[in-house]
Each structure stands twice: as C-alpha cells, then as structure tokens.
Nucleic acid binder design. Structure first.
Lengths: 127, 127
DNA sequence: CGGGATATGCTAAGAAAATAGCAGCTCCCT
DNA sequence: AGGGAGCTGCTATTTTCTTAGCATATCCCG
C-alpha cells in the first residue's frame, strides 16, 4: 500500500531516468546524459533536491559523489511497467508483451527460446 | 527518426495519462481521475495548453469538449514501452517480457497460448 | 609543493507551471 | 419562458522549478 508515487518534475524525472539507466552516476555523468543539458550547477542543485526528497542517496568516491537510487531497480522496474500497462494496455500484460514482441528490435532465436521456457514455466505454475 | 519526446510537465503528464487510459475524456472526467485534484479551472487551463502544444485535440459533444490524444495509442504505447525498456532493462525487451510474466497478475492459460503463438510467429519471421 | 581542474554548499533570481477567479454562453428542466 | 447547472474563454496570481553564480574544499600532476 505504501507506494507513495511521488510526482517528480520534468528535470527530476530526467535525472532519475539517467540514474536508473546507469545504475549509479556522478553529477558530471548525469549532465552528460541529460537532454538540453543545463549548467553543471543546475544538475547539482537538482541532485541535492532529489536527495532531500529521498529519491537518491550518494556515496563518496574520492572527491566526488556518486548518486544511487533509493528504490532499487527491481521495484522501480515493476512500478514503471505497471504504470505503462495500466495506462496504455488497459491493464493487460499480455497485450503489452505482444507490443514488445513486435515493437522492439528483433529478438534472436535464443531469446525466443528463453521466452518460450518462461511461458512453459508459467503454465506449470498456473495449473 | 527522432521521437521528439516532448517533455511534459508533471500535471500535463498526469492529464495525458488519464486521456490515454480513457481514450477520450472531458475536463470533468480528467479532473475526476487526477491525483490531488486541483480546481476545475486548472484542469481546463492545462487542457487548453496541451491543445495548443499539439498533444490533444477536442471534439464538441453538445455543450462540452471531449479531448483526444493526437498521437494515437498505438504509437504512444510503443514509445512508452521503448522508454521503459531503455531505462530499466538495459534495452532488453526480453528482460522486460520476463518481468511482465512474473510481475503482473497471473495470466490464464488462454493468454499463455496466445503468447506462445506470438513467439512462434516471431520465430518464423525471424529466420 | 603549488596551481589548475574538478568538487561541493549555498543562495538568489529568472522562467515556467499550476491554480484560481470572473464573465458570458448553452443546455435542460419545471 | 425563467433559472439553475454546467461549460468555456481569458487573465491574474501564486507557487514551484530551473538555472546560474560565487565561495570554498579537495585532488592530482608537473
């Protein structure tokens, strides 16, 4: 029930995306990956804000900070998928999978095997 | 090619989500579904803005407007999935499917069949 | 060991977002 | 027909976001 989906602002969202993509990132790295990159100071101000709000934390790495998400990737993933499924697929995970299969880049045969295996697995569990 | 993912503000994003979820919506309906619902006027102001920016259009329905997304759901879906896959799954659609299979609610057997069929399909196309 | 490059902390101001208020139009019901 | 309910258009205000600037600390290399 917690899942207090705090609403991030535009930049905050962009920054969190970068951090999730990289797993961890310094202010300079974040800046590198931001669209319409602002000044360095701006990024740092936002990172401080995100930290205050409890979205990231930092570890010291020599002279600089490395920022990490508070919510682990696993959880964040699920939450993101859930939102997409709810918003664009009427809650149907199956439809979402369908879109992934034909939308995203071609999957090679080993990946398809992996998926088949997962489906068999689900079938076994399901009965 | 560029997927000009125009950056929406917090509220704008929320409103677009509502519209995509419902397919079409009046200002009152949008308001209904918004978290931390603001005043009615606020919603309308935002809708007007979204229309100006080209994200939605409206049709007249008797005395009121019904708003619809400009980008059709199909495209919006793909774009949303792509973003999630990129941000949280290192670009691996397969991993995303995996998360969907065990994350989202249980799939019943007919859905699993459907997925199997899609995978076979992909295999056939892929070779 | 000295200086440039790179960091951080803090703060202030400019830009954008979000909200609310008011006037006027339209529909609908009694 | 009269009047309330429900909408829209526009605008003004407040709040939040976003940015940049400056002072200070740390690292690292020649």
């Amino acid at each position: 029930m917690p899942e207090a989906v705090v609403q991030l602002s535009r930049r905050e969202r962009q920054i969190m995306d970068v951090i999730y993509r990289r797993g961890r990132a310094t202010a300079a790295e974040v800046l590198e990956d931001l669209p319409d990159p602002p000044g360095y100071s701006s990024v740092r101000a936002l990172l401080r804000l995100l930290e205050e709000k409890g979205h990231v934390r930092h570890e010291q790495d020599g002279p600089r900070y490395v920022f990490l998400p508070i919510v682990n990737r696993e959880r964040a993933r699920k939450s993101a998928l859930k939102h997409v499924v709810r918003t664009f697929f009427d809650g149907s995970a199956t439809d979402a999978v369908a879109a992934l299969l034909d939308g995203e880049g071609k999957l090679d045969s080993s990946e398809l095997d992996r998926l088949s295996a997962m489906i068999d697995e689900a079938r076994r569990e399901g009965r």
